[in-house]
Design a protein around this nucleic acid. Structure first.
Lengths: 202, 202
DNA sequence: AGTTGTCTGGGACAGTTGACCCACTTGGGA
DNA sequence: TCCCAAGTGGGTCAACTGTCCCAGACAACT
């Protein structure tokens, strides 16, 4: 094995752990399973991390810090706000469907964080990062469509996240794409009704 | 220990297991932890169940069959449909807040079912029972308010479940009651807009 | 009272887990 | 080229897991 700087080694292990979790769940993410996935020896694990616990903490921090919002990436606002919202929601659903395990891992990690003493705040931060991503979409979308939101954009972002979460869970359980699409149609209709044409440019 | 019929004994163990899961998560529900909670000996467990796996299957069946929809219970429709919907959603949120672990256990069990070969359909059934409960509320509410739904009631039930799930997850993570209430206000507004005054009685 | 089948307590088993340790290898600076 | 600290392989440990077994206790029926 080549010499690898500790930071990079930790990242390698974290990503291997994520693959193991995606394939078999949080409880299957044992030190042995992780090092096997990363093609390292067991000793390397405890050389890079003081304990499995420390690794899980770093894993969740990694997820909270951007990895989680992958589903919101690469969206270009359209002309009217209704399509912008609808397209964004569709993009999210498409992402979930293209890689169902990823979102399931996110859900499981939230549960894990809520359960683990000292990690409860991580769950909150994960949701904040979701809402942050949604907020950016809403602001850009409104600007492109020449509208303003009539209620605080934070509240609308929370609506978006409520929908993405709810639809994700339901789709993971029943895989009913058509039903999920109908929900998102309704979401786009009702949310875009919160936009108003910008009256004047000062 | 008194003589107890096997069926009752199985139920006792299942409920003990649910308490253990609520307190420490699915992974902590070991045979020993469960029998300790139920004040039985380890042998009794494997006398009542062939294996831990069989117990988990029965546990999930128990949850799917009614226990899960406890949060929808005891709701009396009001006069106007908007309040009916809003009150139902509020009742759900109140329930979650009064016993946060219960809903978290439901979430964890869905994840567990999705992960466990042979139990994937259980997750779907759990969602169907949620939707069923929501459907009943919608039908009763509409009847009491003298309105009809302009889109299929199944689709509206799905909207309700999407909201309850999304709001539950967010509240579990950030415990922001005010924000959750604002989401539910919006939900009640937009969903009740799908009701129309019943035109004529034939 | 005796017998039979149901149930229980305690112990044991093999496998897995996180953590640790120590003798080795190896790469890069001197 | 030599050296030494960073990094590794393999083994070990105690704790814990699901499962099994068996001797005995108990209730119910004869």
């Amino acid at each position: 094995m080549p010499r690898i700087p500790p930071v990079e080694r930790r990242a390698t292990l974290v990503q291997a752990a994520l693959r193991v979790i995606a394939a078999h769940g949080v409880s299957a993410a044992t030190t042995r399973a992780i090092v096997a996935e990363a093609r390292m020896s067991l000793a390397s694990f405890h050389y890079a991390f003081r304990s499995r616990d420390e690794m899980m903490r770093e894993l969740i921090a990694y997820v909270v810090g951007g990895e989680a919002t992958a589903a919101f990436a690469a969206l270009r606002p359209g002309n009217d706000i209704r399509s912008s919202v609808r397209d964004a929601l569709q993009a999210f659903l498409d992402y979930v469907i293209s890689d169902p395990w990823h979102e399931q891992v996110m859900q499981e990690l939230v549960q894990y964080a809520l359960r683990t003493p000292g990690l409860e705040t991580m769950a909150r931060e994960q949701y904040e990062s979701y809402r942050q991503a949604a907020t950016e979409l809403l602001v850009e979308g409104a600007a492109a469509a020449g509208v303003v939101w009539v209620i605080p954009v934070d509240d609308i972002a929370r609506l978006i996240v409520t929908y993405t979460d709810g639809v994700t869970l339901a789709w993971l359980a029943d895989r009913d794409f058509a039903a999920a699409s109908r929900v998102l149609d309704f979401a786009a209709d009702s949310i875009s009704a919160l936009a108003q044409i910008r009256e004047s440019v000062k």
